[in-house]
Design a protein around this nucleic acid. Structure first.
Lengths: 244, 244
DNA sequence: TCAATGCAAGTGTGATCACAAATCAAATAA
DNA sequence: TTATTTGATTTGTGATCACACTTGCATTGA
């Protein structure tokens, strides 16, 4: 009954990899996605299919499909030259992104505030502790871990909103604002950072109290901060460049 | 200076086709997109790459890229078998979609209400007239044209919201609710239709008065109707199926 | 008659090739 | 020196091929 590639019909092995093996295309897509959310690509940077294929040690085929998907999500931009780049930062786009994020993530956290189980609340509380811990030993600014932890914290909440429609939209928004955020976080580090964990604590407290309005307000403050910070920075640079 | 393929550097010809020639991939993507929004595919219908490639008279390559893009937009669904289908309709998904559409399209129309130029308002007013005209000679129920006109009306408004972030999200939402809508419209036709143009008139009136709240309320009523109608129908069927 | 087995057609995935367009660089002319 | 042109390299796009997996049907066995 069993062919040479027998493992797949072995019930035990099947349980270890039950969801169907991952395709190269998905691996590439997730890899690029992670890089974009983490801000590993600079705004306006152009990406080539063959370049990425070499970097990811695969052929061009999975890369071009992944790029196409990211372009439809507006995470990347297709130039008329048919080359693709990560979208440049403009003030209009930042304001636009922030408004959309306030609208949608605010709704998601308001829904989640009345739906999170005590188990889930415990999880985000422990993330709070992990955040403090990382902040305590700040011998080196581990921006990567900061970004990752921030993402995990927010999406642990968003997942609890119970909407299979809103969550992908939020992911798309993070994908689009990833490059901006990274720039903003670096700017923060230079400028002597405010305690970002404060807002997170407020969020957890509000959710524990099932106070949807308070949770939404704290979230708005949390996600607005890097945007307004970066906005001020860009405006200052623009003014300086104008006078020079 | 000019090569043998001279036309592209001719300024006049360049103006006629300024955006770069269209790729087959984009044509296929737009074709499938149009079919999905128009509800030409049934819920749960499975699509094959080679089948679509034959139907669209191209190779498999552009089709697989288009399918990948539509899957990331949640307009299509990837089964663990690696086959793709248009997502089935469930009550939860409908409620989820409607809530998201109220949130986002409501915000978009509220923004548009204070930004539309008199030129744009004239455009949607004329669409109103076209709608009445079509409704007048209702010798045959031209569902396709009804869907197309409805789409044109709404997106003429949404485009005026001035957000390059919200509009793609709305397009994604229409893509996802397309199959449901088509089913609902057919159900309407059977059940003796309410005057859908009434809400559209209210919307135009509110926008002309720059009354954002009124416009949002009318829009919510407009897009809720087919959903609640279909919801009642599905619930009735479920109850009947349960008792039988 | 019905379940199990085995074969065949169909399908998605990834790699490679061919081609046209774009980009870049060097060489030439003004 | 500067601007223009020409040639080579790079790049995206579409087609085709090879392979593995799934699905469906027919044959075989009890």
């Amino acid at each position: 009954m069993q062919k040479a590639t027998a493992d797949k019909s072995d019930p035990i092995a099947a349980q270890l990899a039950p969801v169907g093996r991952e395709t190269v295309q998905d691996r590439v897509y997730l890899e690029l996605r992670r890089a974009l959310i983490g801000g590993l690509f600079e705004p306006s940077q152009v990406l080539t299919i063959r370049g990425l294929a070499d970097a990811l040690m695969t052929s061009t085929m999975p890369v071009r499909e992944a790029l196409g998907r990211l372009i439809t999500e507006k995470a990347l931009e297709a130039l008329p030259n048919r080359s693709v780049r990560v979208p440049p930062i403009t003030l209009e786009r930042m304001d636009d992104l922030l408004r959309a994020r306030i609208l949608i993530e605010g709704e998601a956290i308001a829904l989640a505030a009345t739906r999170m189980t005590s188990r889930q609340i415990t999880t985000i509380e422990s993330m709070l502790g992990e955040w403090d811990e990382m902040r305590a030993l700040k011998h080196k600014k581990d921006v990567d871990r900061e970004v990752t932890l921030n993402q995990a914290f927010h999406f642990e909440i968003y997942r609890a909103c119970g909407s299979a429609v809103l969550i992908p939209m939020i992911e798309s928004l993070w994908l689009q604002s990833g490059p901006c955020i990274r720039v903003a976080i670096y700017a923060f580090s230079d400028a002597g950072e405010i305690d970002t964990a404060h807002y997170h604590r407020t969020i957890v407290k509000a959710i524990a109290a099932q106070d949807a309005k308070e949770a939404r307000d704290a979230l708005v403050a949390d996600i607005s901060r890097p945007f307004t910070f970066l906005r001020n920075k860009l405006e200052a640079e623009a003014k300086k460049g104008q006078s020079a």
